[in-house]
């Protein structure tokens, strides 16, 4: 496995603000790598460090084994799809896509042909003569993608590329991006604050908070076995249980996470089999979500637990006593102690 992008204790400080603070990561060639986190967590700064728009204040960056710090963006074989697409308003779509080849001195005929092909690849053939202002948001997004890919970059950086699209378009583009990435075999590094997007598209996810990586792993690892309270809360809004409560269930006194969909709801009478744990409490809120509904239960000592129950199951009254049960292995103990 070749390492496409390597960060070795990379920091980027803006005065007293530590936007990126000692980040280590290695993006493997050909993978779809997501950087997930809330705004201000340092994920976008990491992307800009890869592109060359920012220089690290500490640490070392390598792109395919070559030192990247001190190398201007225009000399990196890395291209970016910008959040606001940043299409050149004074150029036609075709000229936009051919821009990278033009500045590299590729002949006119050759570069326009390549641009046409790239437009066809993102399903916009024949749009070349239009101006960016005449396209919809989704179309502009595709042009931005074509403009980057036509250069055959070794790494493609995507900065929240789907953020401005509506839900339906976003889901469609997620699939297309994934297919495109697999067929081209180019390494994708993708920045997003949408955990669903990261989970569904990425081969691996780095979860950022406060300029540091909280956890790096496959979507399944990050989702099922969060290592910190932040990850548990941010990725899929797990129930984070306090050490005292966890201890009362017969586990070591550590923070633990429990997925809402791992819980099943009973009326407080039925018995449970040996490898299942049970918690009793009072319903404090219910929410209708469609495919599944959410029930929030107050389980004593101020611990609130949310459970997802199938739509087929009747929702309990507020204030009624209920039992929540879960498989013992579904409770995930985190590294963080009390």
């Amino acid at each position: 496995m070749t390492t496409a992008v390597l960060f070795d204790k990379v920091s980027r400080h803006f005065g007293p603000v530590r936007a990126v603070d000692g980040v280590d990561l290695a993006v493997v060639e050909g993978e779809f790598f997501a950087m997930l986190g809330p705004s201000g967590s340092g994920k976008t700064t990491c992307l800009r460090l890869m592109a060359g728009f920012e220089q690290p204040t500490g640490g070392h960056i390598e792109i395919f084994g070559e030192t990247a710090e001190g190398v201007p963006p225009y000399r990196r074989n890395v291209n970016t799809v910008f959040q606001d697409y940043a299409l050149f308003p004074h150029l036609s779509i075709l000229e936009n896509v051919a821009y990278g080849l033009m500045v590299k001195g590729v002949g006119r005929e050759e570069r326009l042909k390549a641009a046409e092909n790239a437009l066809a690849m993102v399903k916009l053939p024949g749009y070349g003569t239009r101006r960016p202002g005449q396209l919809s948001g989704g179309q502009r997004q595709r042009v931005a993608l074509a403009r980057a890919l036509v250069n055959r970059p070794r790494v493609l950086l995507l900065d929240e590329p789907l953020g401005a699209l509506d839900l339906k378009l976003r889901e469609q583009m997620q699939e297309e991006l994934k297919t495109l990435q697999k067929s081209l075999g180019i390494t994708f590094v993708f920045v997003t604050h949408d955990q669903g997007e990261a989970l569904s598209m990425a081969d691996r996810i780095a979860v950022f908070n406060d300029g540091r990586i909280q956890q790096l792993g496959t979507p399944e690892e990050v989702y099922k076995r969060p290592q910190t309270r932040f990850v548990a809360d941010f990725v899929g809004s797990s129930n984070v249980l306090a050490p005292a409560f966890v201890e009362s269930l017969g586990y070591p006194a550590r923070y633990a996470s429990l997925r809402p969909e791992a819980l099943s709801l009973g009326d407080g009478t039925g018995s449970v089999t040996g490898d299942r744990k049970r918690v009793t409490g009072t319903v404090v809120a219910t929410g209708f979500l469609g495919a599944a509904n959410r029930v929030t239960v107050e389980a004593g000592c101020g611990t609130r637990i949310a459970a997802m129950v199938p739509a087929s199951q009747a929702l309990p009254e507020q204030g009624s006593g209920v039992t929540l049960s879960f498989a013992a292995r579904d409770l995930h103990l985190m590294d963080e102690a009390a």
Binding site: P72, N79, A86, N151
Partner: peptide, 15 residues
């Protein structure tokens, strides 16, 4: 002329 246009140009290889 947003800053990202200039960044986009440099990103695409223009000095």
């Amino acid at each position: 002329v947003s800053g990202s246009l200039i960044e986009a140009s440099m990103d695409l290889g223009a000095d």
